[in-house]
Simulated scan of single mutants.
Amino acid sequence: MSVELNHTIVPARDRDATADFLVDVLGLEPAPVYGPFRVVTLANGVSLDVVQAGDDVPGQHYAFLVSEEEFDRIRGRIEERGLTYWADPYHQEPGRINTNDGGRGLYWSDPDGHNLEIITVPYGGG
């Protein structure tokens, strides 16, 4: 049996606002409630299970592999919402994208300070 990531928990100060933000910016289906979670499901079946965590939310990093077309749509939604994005994970190059590994990538933050990333080519090349 191969090992695959099935889900991960995303802590949030406001579970619903964070789940809605992810669904909106990434262009995903609405996130249903399952127990204490709002379940944001990605195309490969992995889910981000957003849970209410109170005020002290440690920042995490979540990277999403997307097609070239999805990259353009997501970047457009980021820009339409007036969100700042960066070419690098340390947020030193605002308003730029990177071309690492022959693809395109960018980083932005969610309402809880999680460092989100979209890339069109996996690290190490396609």
Rank of each mutant, 00 (worst) to 15 (best):
G82K: 13
D72L: 07
P32D: 03
W108H: 07
P36E: 05
L48F: 01
P111V: 05
R81Q: 13
R75T: 08
H91G: 09
D112E: 09
I74Y: 01
T99C: 05
F21M: 07
G124V: 15
F64K: 14
G125M: 08
I119G: 01
L116T: 02
P11I: 04
E4H: 11
L22P: 02
Q60R: 15
R75G: 06
D20R: 14
T84E: 14
D56H: 15
N6G: 11
T99W: 06
G27D: 08
G76L: 07
Y107R: 08
T120F: 02
R13H: 11
L28H: 06
I9W: 01
R73K: 12
L28I: 06
F64W: 13
G124Y: 10
V46M: 11
H61Q: 11
D110Y: 01
F37D: 00
T18M: 06
S67T: 15
F71E: 00
D72E: 10
R13S: 00
E79T: 10
A19S: 12
Q92E: 02
S2Q: 08
G54N: 11
N98D: 13
V33N: 14
P94M: 11
R38F: 04
L22N: 08
P11W: 05
Y62L: 15
A63R: 01
E68T: 12
V121L: 10
V3R: 11
P111C: 09
A53E: 10
H7A: 03
T120S: 02
H114Y: 04
G124C: 02
Y90I: 13
P122K: 13
V46G: 03
E93M: 05
A12H: 01
I119H: 04
V46D: 09
N6W: 02
F37Y: 10
G113V: 09
F37G: 04
R38N: 15
D72A: 06
A12K: 06
E29D: 13
D20V: 04
D110Q: 12
P94G: 07
V39D: 12
W108S: 10
R73Q: 15
R73V: 14
M1A: 13
F64A: 10
N100K: 09
N6Q: 12
G125E: 12
L26D: 00
I74Q: 02
Y62Q: 12
Q52V: 11
L28N: 06
E29G: 14
Q92I: 05
Q60H: 13
G125D: 12
N115C: 07
R104E: 05
I118T: 00
Y123L: 10
Q92K: 13
V51D: 03
G126W: 03
E79F: 09
Q92Y: 03
G76D: 01
G82N: 07
E4V: 14
D56N: 14
L116E: 02
H114I: 00
H7Y: 06
H61S: 12
V57H: 06
L83T: 09
G102Y: 12
V25S: 12
E29Y: 03
V39E: 14
I9H: 01
N100Q: 14
I118V: 14
D88E: 07
L65N: 03
Y34L: 05
